[in-house]
Design a protein around this nucleic acid. Structure first.
Length: 419
RNA sequence: GGAGAGGUGGCCGAGUGGUCGAAGGCGGCUCCCUGCUAAGGAGUUGAGCGGGUUUUCCCCGCUCCGAGGGUUCGAAUCCCUCCCUCUCCGCCA
């Protein structure tokens, strides 16, 4: 959520910045300001009436004590008249307030000045590469073929149990999944100072509003039937919202959280994309990294966050590149995002395995996460999140990059003690 | 799921219809005292929103005592619904 005060005081700036994402957002700003004006007009009116009403009510109490019954009765009638007006205005206000909130919650974050302006994926900027894609002296197979031949990935039975984009894993694959989770958690807790967290994977709607998945992206989420709960699409949601509604002490910051959770996504609108294999599943494992920091540090922290995620791939010796997303490709809540893309031999290209973002105060404002400064002021924190990493995609990358001519694959050295 | 108890400010805790944003204590902050520490004394200390004033220094107002409704001129206080916590029972991994 953007700061309404910023939008009010500098609408042209906000519009220009949002246009770098999509031209259409300028109109939303105009609409929002119109609704905001109306909203404030009604608030003023209601509050004036309430002030008068409160004053009268107090007087009624005094009149009764003095035994002036008749005057009291008269005053009662006056208050009743005011109450009628108040009731009517509050109805209007409720309506306009929900429109106001809906618009404000549907406006994406302003991209940071450093973000390259562009339309889509094509305009993303490669920042660096690490490792050399391996030269195969045989034709490398896609992971689904390796997995099926070895009898460790079972797409048919996955579909039988739950439908398309669900997979069953056996033996080495299942074990490797578990090893990767432990390896990643150990790395981030022992080397990078993160606190390990275990969270619910069902969350309330207001929690998803806090991180920006709702109200706009409901179609991407699984909702539990008969209950007002959603399946977690990423642990970013539960970790960031740990401190929703709280005012933290300055000395508590920064907070670094990591959690392994399964993630659930409907993948609405990606029909036909990556249909084979485990690259895009409705259920996948992820180790997530979340940072809650002071505003002045957040960009430094973003650079560190990317490096911490990269470290996983370096230790696994998987070639990757880091890409800076352009304005048009930026996620809803993000002010700046780096994607890490791992080399996929069968596709002869890099594919996303991590996304690291600074949302600045965008989520903090929605989730009301603040801290008290030394001067005693309550200020919104900045929140960051990154995959550290997507476990299924890491597994697939290992299967493909470490594959051998006989159809098997090696285990990366650092994982051996986890197997 | 059943029965009972309860949810009040950073924490503890009082308050059963008006003068309560809320006693008291703890903690925090400021000042005084003090050789250091400890103790002591005085004061101060919730959040959001709207408006004024202008800028971060105030002033006015509205809202908030788990959430949402209701009764009333007036609700922390009375009524209803829901949520959560605790105790006992049931069930269960």
């Amino acid at each position: 959520m953007l700061d309404i005060k910023l939008i009010r005081s500098n609408p042209e700036y906000v519009k220009e910045r949002l246009k770098t994402r999509d031209e259409a957002y300028a109109l939303m700003i105009d609409e929002l300001l119109a609704v905001d004006g109306e909203r404030r007009r009604i608030i003023s009116e209601v509050e004036t009436l309430k002030a008068e009403k409160n004053k009268l009510s107090k007087e009624i109490g005094l009149l009764y004590r003095e035994g002036k019954k008749e005057e009291a009765e008269k005053a009662k009638e006056a208050v009743q008249a005011k109450n009628k007006k108040i009731e009517q205005l509050e109805k209007e206000l409720k309506d306009i307030e929900s429109r106001f909130n809906h618009i404000l919650l549907s406006i994406p974050n302003i991209p940071h000045e450093s973000v390259p302006v562009g339309e889509d994926e094509e305009d993303n900027v490669e920042i660096r590469r690490w490792g050399e894609p391996r030269k195969f002296d045989f034709e490398p197979l896609p992971h689904w073929e390796i997995g099926e031949k070895l009898g460790i990935l079972d797409f048919e039975r996955g579909a039988k149990l739950a439908g398309s984009r669900f997979t069953v894993m056996y033996k080495e694959a299942a074990k490797l999944e578990r090893a990767l989770i432990n390896f990643m958690l150990d790395l981030h807790t022992k080397e990078h100072g993160y606190t390990e967290v275990w969270t619910p994977v069902l969350v309330k709607p207001e929690i998803l509003i806090g991180t920006g998945q709702l109200p706009k992206f409901e179609e991407d989420l699984y909702k539990v039937c008969d209950e007002d709960l959603y399946l977690l699409p990423t642990a970013e949601v539960s970790l960031t919202n740990l401190h929703a509604g709280e005012i933290l002490k300055e000395e508590e910051l920064p907070k670094y959280y990591t959690a392994y959770t399964p993630c659930f996504r409907r993948e609405a609108g990606s029909h036909g994309k990556d249909v084979r294999g485990i690259l895009r599943q409705h259920q996948f494992d992820k180790v997530e990294l979340v940072k809650i920091v002071k505003p002045e540090n957040s960009y430094e922290e973003l650079e560190k966050l990317v490096q911490e995620a990269e470290k996983v791939l370096q230790l696994l010796e998987l070639p990757y590149r880091v890409v800076e997303l352009c304005t048009g490709d930026l996620g809803f809540s993000a002010a700046k995002t780096y994607d890490i893309e791992v080399w996929i031999p069968s596709q002869n290209r890099y594919r996303e395995i991590s996304s690291c973002s600074n949302t600045e105060a965008f989520q903090a404002r929605r989730a009301k996460i603040r801290y008290k400064t030394k001067e005693g002021k309550n200020q919104f924190v900045h929140t960051l999140n990154g995959s550290g990493l997507a476990v299924g995609r890491t597994l697939l990358a290992i299967m493909e990059n470490y594959q051998k001519p006989d159809g098997t694959f090696d285990t990366p050295e650092v994982l051996k003690k986890y197997m």
